[in-house]
Design a protein around this nucleic acid. Structure first.
Lengths: 190, 190
DNA sequence: TAATATTGTTACTATATTTGTAATATTTAA
DNA sequence: TTAAATATTACAAATATAGTAACAATATTA
């Protein structure tokens, strides 16, 4: 099917070069198909980008749910969550997101905002569950855990911290341990 | 100095996105300077790209010479040469070179061709020296060694081969050993 | 400090690229 | 073989980019 080929190529180009640097011509040449064929399936570049974005959001939500619904320890879920986030950033690259967010038409912005809100709600939901199950301190407000989780994720990008480790995965392990054993109600085995 | 900032930003953008996807506007915004200031220092984008290309060529030639003039064993020189080549490809990326080679105006092409010829001559020169010093089989024509060196460098990009190794450096070591002990006049110590 | 050189900005036109479409051709499948 | 689906070419309209003129600010030096 031509339309899925267009999507595949578009995604590849968008993630590599960002949105504005990729033209419809580039996408068509990448797919070895004509422009008119492109317009048979899509209204314009914006529509393709919206689908690409939607796909990646759906995909990441599925992964998110499957991590949180697994029967791992809570600490492992958090670790997998951070890993998921990292690999997403790696794959999408910053240019695509920066480009579409800074467009006048804020169709993308609203999509992303919607996703952020959805994700935050889901995280809150799962943290509440964990709190009920005694996996988190019951007296601390959930919003604190979430605030600190974001803080930890930012620290994973911190150049100074990265330089302390030869391996980024080790930094992640230490950060997750730091995060979890600071919020755990009692000490469990490593 | 503004001009070196322009060059620095240009290089960064060219290596990341290629030549055609980068506009003078991008370069100016990256350097936080106006377009007119750009035109004070450079005639156009082509000129900047030429300088960027020239700089990288000069730099790589210096490194090449310093490797070949070092007093390492010949096998280590070859290994360093392959390493140098690989890190260059990594840094420049394929988009920049592809873009400027496929331009109508073949100013870039001639620069690159010139460099290839220069490099080939230099390699020939150093291989002849090594042959004289008994580090290479005297009966084999130099062109054979060079042909095989290129073959080895291509194999380093071979996806099938890469898949056999978890670490790319290990593949390189094996390939270099393979190359060298195939052409050595007698077995030396590992 | 006044004159001059240097570096920078804004605002604009010319040019080039990209978009999106109409008219037309080719392929597929019943 | 004919109709429907799919693709191509060639082009006008919209948009983005390149390059410049006229002017402003800042630094240099006599």
């Amino acid at each position: 099917m031509s339309s899925s080929l267009f999507l595949k190529i578009s995604e590849k180009l968008f993630f590599k070069f960002g949105y504005r640097r990729v033209t419809i011509k580039d996408i068509c040449e990448g797919a070895s198909l004509s422009k008119m064929t492109f317009y048979r399936y899509f209204k314009n570049k914006e529509e393709v980008a919206k689908i690409v974005l939607k796909n990646i959001i759906d995909e990441s939500n599925k992964k998110f749910e499957s991590i949180m619904e697994s029967d791992n320890l809570f600490i492992n879920k958090i670790e997998n969550l951070i890993l998921l986030n990292e690999s997403l950033i790696d794959r999408i690259g910053s240019d695509f997101l920066n480009d579409i967010i800074s467009l006048k038409a804020n169709i993308f912005k609203s999509l992303i905002d919607k996703q952020s809100i959805y994700e935050e709600r889901k995280i809150e939901e799962y943290f509440k569950k964990a709190q009920k199950a005694g996996e988190l301190n019951k007296k601390t407000p959930i919003s604190f855990f979430i605030y600190m989780l974001k803080d930890i994720q930012e620290k994973l990008q911190d150049e100074k911290l990265k330089r302390l480790y030869s391996n980024e995965k080790d930094l992640m392990k230490d950060l997750t341990n730091y995060y979890f054993f600071g919020i755990a109600p009692k000490n469990k085995e490593m």
